[in-house]
Design a protein around this nucleic acid. Sequence first.
RNA 1: GCUUUGGUAGCUCAGUGGAUAGAGCAUCUCCCUCCUAAGGAGAGGGUCGUGGGUUCGAUUCCCGCCCAGAGCACCA
Length: 595
Amino acid sequence: MIKFKFIDDLCNGLKAAFPNADSELSIVPERCPENMEGDLTINCFRFARNLKGAPDKVADAAAEILAKHPDIEKVEKVKAFVNITMTAVAAHRQTVGDISALLQAGVLEQGRQRILIEYSAPNTNKPQHLGHVRNNTLGMALAALLKRVGHEVIEINLVNDRGIHICKSMLGYQRFGNGVTPESSGIKGDHLVGDFYVKYSRALKDDIEALKKERPELAGKDDDELFLETELGRMTQKMLQDWEAGEPEVRALWQKMNNWVFAGFAETYRRMGINFAHTYLESQTYMLGKDLIADGLEKGVFQKRADGAIFIDLGKLGQKVVLRSDGTSVYITQDIGTTLKKYEDYRPESQIWVVGDEQILHFQMLFAILKKMGYTWADNLYHLSYGMVNLPTGKMKSREGKVVDADDLFAEMVDLAKVAAEERAGGEATSEELAARAEIIGMGALKFMLLKFNPKTTMMFDPQASVKFEGDTGPYVQYACARINSIERKAAERGLAVEAVNWELASAPEEKAVSLLLWQYPQVLQTAAEKKDCSLLVDYLLDVAKAFNRFYRECPVLNAEDDAVKQVRFALCLAVRTVLKDGLATLTIGVPEAM
RNA sequence: GCUUUGGUAGCUCAGUGGAUAGAGCAUCUCCCUCCUAAGGAGAGGGUCGUGGGUUCGAUUCCCGCCCAGAGCACCA
């Protein structure tokens, strides 16, 4: 991060004043509260004990040192806080004054890694919904953030393309499809398949209800228990067995329907801007892991139970079966194998999974097992768990059709952005331009909103509120950029170029506030990457946009009275835009030319 | 029952062992003869779930309790 000159001088001065001080002394200035006078504040409570001095005395000494510093205009001591007002030149010099260095400072000097990140992981029996969109957005933005600070990041997907639920949509198609295709119906492939999954589910529910009427003794049983009592259920199980046996007709249907779904997913991913380096298919990985169990059994990592099942004792986490008594594998067995496969394929230093928080225990167990199996890299596995998305009407429920479909949501956001953009453009833009703008604004608004929440919070998605583009939203940040673009265009028309910038002329509080916010950018990037939390960056970009809008209101750029002032302010605008664009790009959000 | 995450303004969410706890939305005022009003300025709105404890100082850390979500399969 960029360190202001006066900080070093302060550290040295304080060490001299407090002879018993620890050799380690780190002072990071904080933002001064609005109601206090000053640009930054030194909170002496934080490091007084490193100096072996009372906070109040330390603050006295700090105030005395800073008051004499050429970069400091004014010092005010309140309790153990030292509020400082910097000179304009000092505030701008290392921030907007050297914007490329500021951007570069976000990159880690050490500790860069090759990181594998897995996200999305959809099933091929239905289209993606809002929950997937949160997952996709968190995954792609985290990948971009990690890249931004210098890591090598490999994004991968693991598609769940086999299993009983896939057979359900296939059987639904066989029963009710009449040979319809995406081409013949004009329906996107994943939606078409999803429709048959829904039709199947309804038919199964009807069959179970009929069964319960016929045999009242079953009334207390739940639907899963009665699955195999229905003809439809038995056929579904038969289909899964046929699939596993490689029965050609079943395989052909499976392949055909999965291809429809993949084509649909490709469109969803394209619109979000996702590019996976590789997509693993569960149909090709589900048998992995089994052979590792025998090996682990020999080494004593696993134990065999009397009934033949193989398990592992994970202490506090409990016991976990890794091979059923019939010798077949379970979910975690596959994950053991797949994790090893991913490691062998890419040799990453760490792996990240973006998966919902209901699987926290699963991943704790997975990581613990891999460690016990002796893989040293298992210390660097990370489950980025995130909370579910609720609607004002309650939880999303696929079975009840209470879901917000991803493609519908994209269309709705972009349509609304388009209506607004058309109104504002007033015929000044072509329809292609408007469409491109609306795409960037609508998708940006959606991603920004999803990233604004801390990943682990169970968030509420209010469709009504989410389509607004005012307040703490992506478009608010994009709008600040659009305003700067507009200034840039007008500056070019008027022949204003930035030549010699005299930062001394940017001494208004609004101008310094912008610079001092931009100063924090490298640290924000690194902290967000360290915590794997993009919401920190989201909040920061909102702060910058707010500071810019205040500046924009108070300090005319092109209408300033003096040419030199115009240049300084114009330079400040360009620096703001550079950071906002860079930050939004790090969240995988674009910026339109105009709004 | 056990594990775990949360309970902060009417709503959705930030936040932190330190200065008078913040933002957006919603409500109410103002501001387009001025670089884009998807903007700015301001007002009202809080016993930070609750009862204890540690501390110079606790919304933040510890313990109990209440409420809510999630998990506790030879399902994925």
